[in-house]
Every structure is written in structure tokens, then in C-alpha cells.
Simulated assay, not measured.
Amino acid sequence: MLWVIIAIVAVVVILAILLITSYNRFVKQRNLIQESWRQIDVELHRRYDLIPNLVETVRAYAAHERHVFEEVARLRTQAVNVQGSNPEQRAAAEGQLSGALRQMMISVEQYPQLQSNQNFLGLQRELTDTEDRIAAGRRFYNANVGDYNTRIEAFPSNVIANSFKFEKAGYFEVKDEQVRAVPQVSFGTIGSVAGEQAPPQMQPGAPSSGQIHPRLPGDQGNYQGNYQQPPQIPGGYQGEPPVGGPPVGSPAPQDGQPPFTGGQ
């Protein structure tokens, strides 16, 4: 009877240890997600600080692009005023702001003097570095969210999650249609050059060199290819000499020479 009690106590202790371990792991993952989100938030606010200086620099060279500047300023204010740390709402605001910034940079391309301004180039470089850090932080945050949400849904860790009210975290995904768009590739000009003519087509039976040889005497029928008639041999015979006799057209044997017998 004593061993039964010991077995029951051992099972209870093991279950308690597993429960505590699983709970502590949930807490650790949740804190890691919050920490990674704070890193993203720092980089986002850094971008908010860079945008006004960038807009003022561009406005000095492209004052008539007023509607672009006003849209960037409005979306920046909207992104700053998003309350709480809801990733979905922040992602929506950041997607609109990124699109407005991209439109402003496209407008800048027609101002060569602005592109050579050192202040603008420095701000553009800082903004690019900030965007890279935001992208890296977003990947780290989403990876932690994926592991955390998987444990919430998987068994038996979902029992602990439901018992202690651990809720799924939201991903931070900037929904920018221009970034997600599939590039259009045209194969119409590949392998060809403007103004270049296609090579002439080879006609059946035409010589490979593209030159037609003149017809030779005695050539009958249709002339095709590079084939040429064998040369005419005096005496009217064409081709190999007859077996057993001298070649046609060869001189007659002189006095004192043996007649030709066809051997070598």
C-alpha cells in the first residue's frame, strides 16, 4: 500500500514540475515578444523624427510638390497617434506611411540638384538604415510570435495556456501592395536588338555558304546543293577508267615498252 502512495505522490510531483516549467516558458516567451516589440517601436520613432527634416529639405527644392508633403505629414501624425501596442493597427499605419514616403522619393528623382545635396543624402542614408533595422526587428518579432502562438495551440501546452489565459499575439506585417506586387517581365525584346534584322532563311537545297555555283556543261535536271559535275576528260569519258585497259586519253606506248595489261 505504501508503494501506491509513493507512486501517486511521484506522479503529482512530476505533473507539478511540468506545469511550472510550461507556465514559466509561456511567461518567458511573452516577455521576449514584448521586448522585441519595444525594439521595433524605438526604430519606428526614430523614423518619425527623420521624416520632418527630410520633408523640409525636399520642400526647399520642390515647393510645388505640396500635396506629396502634406500627405506624408498627415500619415506620419496618424502613425504617431496610434494608441497602444496593437501590431495590426501599427502595421496598417506604417504601410500607408511607407507608400507616401516612396511616392515622395519618386518625385525627387526629377531634381538633380536635390540628389546632390549633402544634407538630403545624409537624411536619406539614415532613413534607409532605419528601414533596414525595422525590417530585421520585424522578422525577429514575428519569429517569436510564431513560436508562442504554436505552443498556445499545441497539446498539451494549450491546456496551460487556456488555464492561465495566455492569448495569441499578433504579427507585425506591413501590407504594402507595391512591395508584394509581382514584377512584370516582358520577353519580347530578349534576344533581339532594336533595328536588327533577322538572318535570311535558308532555302531547301541551297548551299551553306549562301553562294550559288554556276551550272556546268552537261549538268542535267534540277541543280541542288553544292554538288558539281566531275571534270570532262578528253575522249568523252567521265569517271573511272575501264578495267583491263589503259586510261582513256593516255598516250600510246612507245617502241620498246611493254603493252599495258591492267596490272600495277
Rank of each mutant, 00 (worst) to 15 (best):
N226C: 00
E131L: 00
F120R: 00
F155A: 06
A169D: 07
V185Q: 07
Q228L: 15
R215G: 10
Y61N: 03
S208R: 14
I33K: 01
A252C: 08
L15E: 04
E88N: 12
S107T: 10
Q228H: 10
A93I: 09
Q118P: 04
I20V: 15
D147L: 14
R139S: 14
V80T: 08
G263Q: 04
I106C: 00
L18A: 10
R30V: 01
E131S: 11
P52C: 02
Q110W: 00
S157I: 05
V108P: 00
G249Y: 08
S36W: 02
Q110M: 05
A79Y: 10
Q115A: 03
G137E: 08
L44R: 14
K168N: 03
S192K: 15
G256E: 01
Q34H: 13
R180A: 13
T21S: 10
R139F: 08
Q39L: 10
P217W: 00
I233D: 05
L18K: 03
A154C: 01
G205Q: 08
Q264F: 02
I134P: 09
G210K: 14
Y61G: 05
V12R: 03
I212E: 14
Y48N: 05
P247T: 01
E43F: 13
I5K: 11
E153N: 12
I5M: 10
R47A: 06
G218A: 12
S186G: 10
Q201C: 01
R180V: 01
H67T: 11
F140R: 09
A63F: 02
R38A: 14
S107N: 10
P230M: 10
G236K: 03
P183K: 05
R66W: 07
E131I: 04
I51A: 04
Y171S: 00
V55A: 10
I33Y: 05
G84L: 07
H64M: 02
S22Y: 03
L121K: 08
Q197F: 12
L2V: 12
G262N: 01
P183D: 02
N24Q: 02
R138G: 08
N144K: 14
N31V: 15
E88W: 02
S22H: 03
I152S: 06
P87E: 04
Q211W: 06
P258N: 06
E56G: 06
A91Q: 12
V182S: 09
T21H: 02
L216S: 15
T189P: 04
Y61P: 05
I106W: 02
P214A: 14
Y227A: 09
